[in-house]
Amino acid sequence: MKTYGSEPGAPTPVQVGISELVVSEGDDTLKSYGLGSCLAIALYDPESDIGGLAHVMLPDGDAADNSDRKPGKYADTAIRALLRRMVEQGASYTTVESKIAGGSDMFEFESFGDGVGQRNIVAAKAELEKLGVPLVAEDVGGEYGRTVEFTPGTGSLVVKTADERAENGVTEL
């Protein structure tokens, strides 16, 4: 369930819900549950230990009129918002690296076209390249869900699937 509080101090790990983005630092962990076609985008600066996680739902915020209000909803605007907030907190733009996970295509529905997950992956990669942020690791695509846990201080992005005992059950990027 989603809650709306007024004060910070949420317990760790901090949950990053759909369309949300959170910037943090050090050993805090940021977690997004049950990504299907949604995409988790993790940015971090190894120098300052500042990083952030976005749980994006759609590719193109520039084409949407509510992306000012909800930058975390779209791959392109989420990446820019993460970067801006990290730099505001002391990260250095030039050393920021990125990792992404998710973007599955669970269903082959006619209405889905090329795949809703695929569109998010393509958009995120394009925006990262445009901004010159290196993509150092990825675990994307496929037909299964993922839960991710990100630690800004180490840049570690742990990806779990529904069956943790399976071959691809737990991956650390």
Binding site: Y33, G34, L35, G36, S37, M57, F107, G145
Partner: peptide
């Protein structure tokens, strides 16, 4: 029908993404 055996949320998010356009 499309069968899924996976995390519950992961089964629903493709649908909301498609509608979210």
């Amino acid at each position: 029908p499309e069968f899924i055996h996976d995390m519950g949320a992961a089964a629903v998010d493709p649908v909301i993404i498609q509608l979210g356009e």
